[in-house]
Every structure is written in structure tokens, then in C-alpha cells.
């Protein structure tokens, strides 16, 4: 056993190193717009940010809690439409529509989750898939609310604290803030009693239940939180593209996000981020293949999986995470 002084020093050192890493990463992210990237590249970066929120949130329910959801696009859609409609009808600003959109998505997830999260595996998968198709079809047919296939054009650009967001650089900083909020919230949830309960359910639901984890309650909680952030991403998307229609929220969108999670590594937050970046860029990088682009995309998915079935970062515990544990330990033996 080490002495208390050594512990405190070690702890301080760890915290210092961690903050340095965070500051470094943040500084790197902040200067991206200063690199005078072209508009197209900036748009890709911003979309990658949107997908990061979607992938990180799906990762919570599918990667960490182990419940396969094939309908994440539904909550993305609900967020986008809630935001668009509130903004168009009532002229509400982004700072109100975004939380409202996220809460709406969470509420719907809660109502869907209570009766359906008892289901497992393929059954849950098809229910989430079916639900997301229902959402899309309703959006396509409820002309009075969503204008159906014509979509909703001219959604107001966000105004944050009296500051109008219009240029790509400004949107970049907005999505960066949202990604950081999402990352921090999910990180804190995962590294807590809640997160341990989620992971325990994934690992062995019966053992988790025997240890006092109310499985249904925690699955619903995880699903609801995941939907909350998907709704947030939807809200951003609506105010960024300023036009939404049901075509943006198909089953393919859910699959796209799921592929990001699986490719990056289920149950890994950095994995979800890397997966989002790769799969947002891949179709663009393959653009030179012209018509053969999507064939190649499919082939890449097929080839990647056997090479690393657990995903790029799956099963890897990051040094940062480990240090947090050591910190626990140090604190624990004080």
C-alpha cells in the first residue's frame, strides 16, 4: 500500500495528464474551421458531427445495453419534425426547439419502450424497425402536419444568444458544442451506477436481475436517453439543412448509423466517433468510382467484418478510462 501523499500526487498527475489530453483535442477541434477548408469539406465535417451524436446514442442502447435497435432513424425523424414544426408554426428559436425535439423523441421512446423492451433479439429488432417505418409512413401521409412528400422547406436558421448561425464555420461550432454535450453526458452515464447496470444487462441479464437490476426499467431508461440524443441530432439537422422530408429518415439511415457503431466497435464511445467519420466519408471518397460506388461500399462492409468482427476499437479499453478506474482506486484507499 502506498502512502496517502503518494496517492494524492498520483491522482493529481493523472488529472493533469487527462486535462492536457482534453485541452489538446479541444484545441485541435476548435481550429479546424481556420484551415480554410472548402464548403463541401465543411459540410461533410458537420454531417459527420451529426452522425457522431446518432452513433454515440445508438451505441448506448445497442452497444452498451445490448438491445438491438433497427429504428434509430425514427427518433432522428421525430426530433427533426418536432423542431421544424415548432419553428415554422410558432417561430420558436433553436434554443427552445432543440430541447423540445429531444424531449419529444425521448417521450415517444418511453411510450414505445414500456411495452416492447420486454422483447429480445430479433423480436425487438423488428419492432423497432417496424416502428420506424410507421413513423416514416405517417410523415409521408399526414399532409396537414408534415406536408407529406413535399417536405418542410425554409426552416429558420438557429439563433443562439442573439447570434445568428448561418455560415458553415458557425454551424461547425454549434455541432461541436452538441457533440461535446452528448459525449460528456453519455460518458458520465456510462461510467456510473446506471452505466454498470446497462452493461450488466448486456453481459448477463439474469445475473444482473439477481443483483437487483430492474432489467425492464433500465432498458427503458437506456432507450429513452438514446432517443433523446437522436432527437437532438434531428433538430440540428432540420435547422442546418433547413429542409426536411421523409426521404431523409428511411430504414437505410438506421442501418447507416448501426454500421457506424458496429464498424467502430460496439460499446466503445471513441469507436462510435471513428465509425461515424469513416462511414460519412467513405461514400464521398468512393465517388470516383461513380456508379460502382455503392457496390464498393457494400463490399467494404462485407470485407471489414471478418477482419475485425468486434469493430475497430471494440474490446479496447482506453487509457483514459483505465486512469479513471485507477483514480477510483486511489480515492478508495484513502
Amino acid at each position: 500500500m502506498e502512502t496517502t501523499v503518494e496517492h494524492v500526487n498520483k491522482k493529481k498527475k493523472i488529472i493533469k495528464r487527462r486535462s492536457m489530453i482534453y485541452v489538446g483535442v479541444l484545441a485541435g477541434l476548435l481550429i479546424i474551421p481556420l484551415l480554410s477548408l472548402n464548403n463541401f469539406t465543411m459540410r461533410m465535417v458537420i454531417m459527420a458531427g451529426t452522425y457522431m451524436i446518432l452513433a454515440m446514442s445508438l451505441n448506448l442502447i445497442t452497444g452498451y445495453t445490448g438491445q438491438l435497435s433497427l429504428g434509430h432513424a425514427a427518433f432522428y425523424a421525430i426530433g427533426a419534425y418536432t423542431s421544424a414544426i415548432l419553428s415554422m408554426r410558432f417561430g420558436w428559436s433553436f434554443l427552445i426547439t432543440a430541447p423540445a425535439a429531444a424531449l419529444m423523441a425521448a417521450l415517444v421512446a418511453l411510450l414505445l419502450g414500456i411495452p416492447t423492451l420486454k422483447l429480445q433479439g430479433a423480436y425487438l429488432a423488428i419492432v423497432t424497425l417496424g416502428f420506424s417505418e410507421i413513423v416514416r409512413i405517417v410523415a409521408l401521409n399526414w399532409m396537414g402536419l408534415t406536408r407529406g412528400p413535399m417536405g418542410i422547406p425554409g426552416i429558420a436558421r438557429p439563433e443562439v444568444l442573439g447570434y445568428r448561425i448561418a455560415s458553415n464555420t458557425q454551424y461547425y461550432y454549434l455541432i461541436l458544442a452538441l457533440v461535446i454535450i452528448t459525449y460528456m453526458s453519455l460518458y458520465r452515464i456510462i461510467n456510473s451506477r446506471l452505466g454498470r447496470a446497462f452493461i450488466a444487462i448486456r453481459e448477463d441479464d439474469l445475473a444482473a436481475q439477481s443483483m437487483g437490476v430492474d432489467i425492464l426499467k433500465y432498458k427503458i431508461l437506456s432507450f429513452t436517453i438514446a432517443a433523446f440524443f437522436a432527437g437532438l441530432a434531428g433538430s440540428f439537422y432540420a435547422h442546418y439543412v433547413t429542409y426536411i422530408d421523409p426521404q431523409s429518415f428511411t430504414f437505410n439511415e438506421s442501418i447507416q448509423v448501426l454500421s457506424m457503431v458496429v464498424l467502430g466497435g460496439m460499446g466503445s464511445m471513441p469507436g462510435a466517433i471513428i465509425g461515424s467519420v469513416i462511414l460519412t466519408w467513405a461514400p464521398e471518397m468512393l465517388r470516383f468510382l461513380e456508379d460502382y460506388r455503392m457496390i464498393m461500399y457494400g463490399a467494404i462492409l462485407i470485407v471489414m467484418m471478418p477482419i475485425r468482427p468486434q469493430g475497430i476499437l471494440g474490446g479496447i479499453r482506453f487509457k483514459l478510462d483505465k486512469e479513471e478506474e485507477n483514480q477510483h482506486e486511489a480515492v478508495g484507499s484513502e
Partner: peptide
Amino acid sequence: RLFPHMTVLENVLVGMH
């Protein structure tokens, strides 16, 4: 029936749930 991909410490912490 442990939680195989959780650390030893985390397993015990789940026990305290």
C-alpha cells in the same frame, strides 16, 4: 454467471446495485 467484459471491481459494484 459473472459479467465477463466488466472488470472485477465493476462486477462487485454491480453487486452493490
